[in-house]
């Protein structure tokens, strides 16, 4: 009996500590934006809209959110398009060297990271004039995400039965018709997963835009966060906290949407 009580107390203490550990850092994000002249301190907010006003008036803040959207949507669209074409062909046609290619893709996706490749990517961008180009950055980000995306999508395509396509083929559908009428609708959940994964990845990416975009007009929110300083060189907490909140809301919404629609299925290695 007492053992049970002790264990219950232990369990709830553990839960309380974990809750505190994970919740404490987040408190500031939900209080400071609504506080007049916030400090690092967590205070009961006075619900002023002034900080949001300041963000609206900031020359780059809202523009950077738009930039983030351009980068994330552009990259996700390219990743989904190219990865699905490649994954479909690799899943359905035994191209020469296919298995070696897949193995190489798997390796590439895990070993070549922004950290290891930052120097040459920077140089490459400078050399071919892709520095300060959003399109260039989108292509670079796409190249980085493609191997893992192809790998995950191929798994998905392998598990959809081939008889649908064969059936359409006997009815006389051309390969492109088969892809458009049959394959894309069938693997739509897989495409959505990859799209969300790519969106989240680019939305949070700091290093690549930080290296490759120096024009503030083009920088995404992740980089603009680090320019929100006062004239005195101190972090401008009003802008920082409010902007951080605005910048976070889309990913939270996307997470809620995904977990509701697809039950947040677990895909090993989906985020890095």
């Amino acid at each position: 009996m007492t053992g049970f009580v002790v264990r219950r107390i232990g369990f709830y203490t553990f839960v309380a500590v974990v809750l505190a550990f994970f919740a404490l850092p987040l408190l500031w994000l939900v209080t400071a934006p609504f506080t007049d002249t916030p400090t690092y301190e967590v205070k009961v907010p006075d619900f002023t809209p002034a900080n949001f006003q300041a963000i609206v008036e900031h020359p780059y803040a809202l523009g950077s959110l738009v930039n983030s959207i351009i980068l994330a949507v552009g990259t996700a669209a390219l990743v989904v398009l190219f990865a699905s074409l490649a994954a479909y062909a690799l899943s359905r046609v035994r191209l020469p060297g296919r298995d070696a290619l897949l193995y190489a893709l798997l390796l590439l996706s895990s070993i070549i990271t922004g950290t290891a490749a930052m120097v040459p990517l920077f140089q490459l961008a400078v050399t071919v004039g892709l520095i300060d180009s959003q399109l260039g950055l989108i292509l670079i980000l796409t190249g980085g995400l493609l191997p893992a995306a192809i790998f995950m999508l191929k798994d998905f395509m392998d598990s959809t039965p081939k008889s649908y396509e064969e059936s359409a083929r006997v009815f006389g559908a051309s390969p492109l018709q088969i892809v458009g009428h049959i394959v894309v609708p069938l693997v739509r959940p897989g495409l959505a997963t990859i799209a969300v994964w790519a969106l989240a990845n680019v939305w949070g990416n700091f290093l690549m835009p930080y290296l490759l975009l120096s024009d503030v007009e083009k920088q995404p929110a992740a980089v603009i966060m680090y320019t929100l300083y006062t004239e005195g060189g101190q972090p401008n907490l009003r802008l920082l906290s409010t902007f951080g909140l605005l910048y976070s809301i889309p990913v939270v919404l996307m997470y809620l949407f995904v977990s509701k629609k697809y039950g947040f299925r677990f895909h090993g290695g989906i985020k890095r």
Partner: peptide
Amino acid sequence: ASAFVAPALILIAVFLVFPALWV
């Protein structure tokens, strides 16, 4: 099929493999 795979492979080659070799 090769045409389907090509765009992805080109992007990967230029922006992932080439930098890795370059490094």
